[in-house]
Design a binder for these strands. Structure first.
Lengths: 145, 145
DNA sequence: CTTTATTGGTTACAAATGTAACTGTTGATT
DNA sequence: AATCAACAGTTACATTTGTAACCAATAAAG
């Protein structure tokens, strides 16, 4: 079709990555969306708070590499759903310390288990060494340090 | 933080895939967005038409695993920008045969080259065998056949 | 001090997306 | 032929996202 030597889009890494990511995310999303009515960013905030404990929105934003408005909205929604609480830091009243409620912690425990299970169903189809390499490569794509 | 053994979100495959995909897509997007004002789906349609020649919207939709409304919108926009033309198939007037205009072909040639280059800058940081494995795994995640 | 720049977080608006209902056309069933 | 289901593509509406301007609080510079 082109006068050039064709480069196959089906081999293009950003394309493959996108499709794979979309596929997995949708699969897993069905779990937390149906059970807790959560959005992707919401569940990520929960995950970060669950894992690292008390954080500010900015911390989460940096760790999750997600824009602060997205985090802001997710935090509001999670607060409304009573999954987290926030209190202004008395030492710097710009910041807010976020933490999971009891309810939020339960959700985290459940989702974290679901994530582990889902991760296994994926990785089970490959050799351990392959999976390790995959993770390593993905990390290096994310942070080309 | 949790009473359970922690599963690290930073190791969760859907999460890693998402971040890697987002990173690469944004990088590459800056090229076609700035130069041609295209959106992701638009450039994918161009790529498919450039590679496979004449197709219907449905064909593209299936190949690209993208919802038909998204394709429909992209096609409209590409037509408006004079990158493709469509004509109703006389044998089945429901379908429309899409094909790139001369202008669209030029864009394809350019983007295809850019994609190849970008793909190289990524893959150059890994061994060939590693890249091959990465692609293989991604494909199998996309199509768990 | 007081002005100025920076920071954490929010809001407002535009642009993009998902979902479902819709149109027109073909194919199948009777 | 007449009815009904299926299909390609579009449209309309609600939800989600990106962008940039914004507010309040702090930090830095004069």
């Amino acid at each position: 079709m082109s006068k050039n030597v064709d480069f196959d889009i089906a081999e293009f890494l950003p394309y493959l990555l996108n499709q794979a990511a979309e596929q997995c995310s949708l699969d897993f999303q069905s779990y937390y969306k149906e059970k807790y009515g959560m959005l992707r960013t919401e569940w990520r905030v929960v995950f970060h708070l669950g894992k690292y404990g008390l954080m500010t929105a900015r911390d989460v934003s940096l760790k999750a590499k997600t824009h602060k408005t997205k985090i802001s909205r997710a935090v509001h929604e999670l607060e409304r759903k009573d999954f987290l609480v926030r209190e202004t830091d008395p030492n710097d009243r710009r910041q807010e310390r976020l933490s999971l409620t009891t309810r939020g912690k339960k959700v985290y425990d459940d989702l974290q288990r679901a994530a582990r299970d889902y991760d296994r169903t994926i990785t089970d189809t490959f050799k351990d060494s392959e999976v390790a390499l995959l993770r390593k490569m993905l990390k290096s794509l994310i942070d080309p340090a």
